[in-house]
Design a protein around this nucleic acid. Structure first.
Lengths: 261, 261
DNA sequence: GAGTGGTCTAGACCACCTT
DNA sequence: AGGTGGTCTAGACCACTCG
């Protein structure tokens, strides 16, 4: 097998060249998804480089989300379209996520959702971050009522949701933390006659913070989709529903909105 | 200054401990955005570890999108909310991106959009990828008419757009590659009486492929938002408009859609 | 027990930026 | 010129998985 060889004179670093070779192997099907990758020692021997260089190359592919490594077992090519949920954006955050399923083995291709964290946070009052403050239209660092839920959402996709209630609404409605026991905030708002049908949906993506990464068990090289649902009534913000979804498992679907052509 | 020290007995690896220390320094404002980070040699001396370990720790923060390194100059804390564009999702992909601006210096905090690639691809006919095939509802590998445009979109955000035309429409309308000269496909469809007001919008996020990373000049640790706008008429797919947006600069805003409560 | 990936050391040389 | 990050070597020991 005439393996491509690396060019030590090239200005392109060795680990990049090796990453390019391996990426092509994956893209062109010579290294199919799910099967074992050549081990680091094998790659060292085949391409005559140090283990450091091999690991850098694999690191590039890990960052691209193409490869996952499993300690002691090997590295594996990830199938980017496997295990995806089509998530209806109109429902995200509106229904309390289901309790987590039983912890199960983590296989490269069939990553199931593991939960090591709380289903619902005990913490019910938090200071707003700058970004939430902006959306909620309150001053930064205001203490507001927060509800948090983690698990599989109504559509089977893992998610972490936080519902931030505007202090004005809390006060006007005389809502207390106890009132929310057993209720998910959007439900409660509907019950109390605050449908909050106005507003907008804001979508961002970022690499997960260590906390989010742990709670949603997001592997390396996988970003998180963040949907912020701003609920308004009479042009005043009532609440913000923040949802984090692991991007390797989530396809967010919005119904057609009127387009500007 | 009583620096926290690393625990060599801990099961938590040194580079992780160091990353945690540095992350906290950033989060709590001791290392403000934009200013120089301690150099790798300084961190080696301060924490009594090898440069490899220091680089691993900084690598963690780079992957999280908290830090950017500039060769020869130093590493810098990134401000996650700086330089963001609020992008109206109803307009994305519907208007041809503007020509690229002059190439300019790349500063950590004010990354401006650089274009090394084509403004509009010469390639006008491509095979569909599996994912595009699914959205376009054609068989995988079908050759279809594709238009590609890169630059700043109508709202000032950098983006890469591809418009994929369904072969049925191409045939029925007798559209040729020349017809598209000077026109952006969605405009052309509107002109030809195919408003394609139906359909749906699909949002995903992923780490950029090397090509996208280069074209949009996305730094390490930054994912890409992908918006696929499926244009339909009478329940048949007319075209798919694919848009890639660097997630560190883009906040995608959807108007309120009817919610399921 | 053999093989795998994860961590860490102690160096070296280079390319790049700032002054 | 001096400092910075980028690449690479040649080892070592460890924790984990699998047959």
């Amino acid at each position: 097998m005439a393996r491509p060889t690396l060019d030590r004179e090239s200005p392109v670093p060795l680990y990049q060249q090796l990453a390019d070779v391996l990426r092509r192997d994956i893209e062109e099907g010579r290294l199919p998804a799910g099967v074992a990758f050549p081990s680091e020692r094998k790659l060292m021997a085949r391409y005559q480089v140090t283990r450091t260089t091999v690991r850098s190359a694999i690191g590039v592919l890990k960052q691209e989300g193409m490869v996952v490594a499993e300690h002691g077992a090997g590295s594996f090519v990830r199938d980017p379209k496997a295990d995806r949920h089509r998530v209806d954006a109109t429902r995200v955050g509106m229904v309390r996520p289901a309790p987590p399923r039983q912890e199960s083995k983590d296989v490269a291709l069939t990553r199931s959702f593991r939960l090591s964290a709380i289903l619902e946070s005990a913490e019910r009052r938090m200071k707003t971050t700058p970004w939430i403050s902006e959306l909620l239209q309150v001053e930064g660092g205001t203490e507001v009522l927060v509800q948090e839920a983690t698990g599989l959402d109504s559509q089977g996709a893992p998610s972490l949701c936080r519902a931030w209630l505007h202090p004005r609404v809390e006060k006007e409605m005389g809502l207390s933390e106890e009132d929310l026991d057993g209720y998910w905030l959007p439900d409660m708002l509907a019950i109390k006659g605050v449908p909050a049908a106005e507003g907008e949906d804001v979508v961002e993506a970022a690499m997960p913070t260590p906390n989010i990464k742990r709670v949603l068990s997001v592997p390396d090289g996988v970003p998180v989709l963040q949907l912020y649902r701003v609920m308004k009534q009479d042009d005043l913000v009532v609440a913000v529903i923040e949802t984090h979804l692991p991007a390797d498992q989530t396809t967010l679907v919005f119904p057609r909105i009127p387009l500007h052509i």
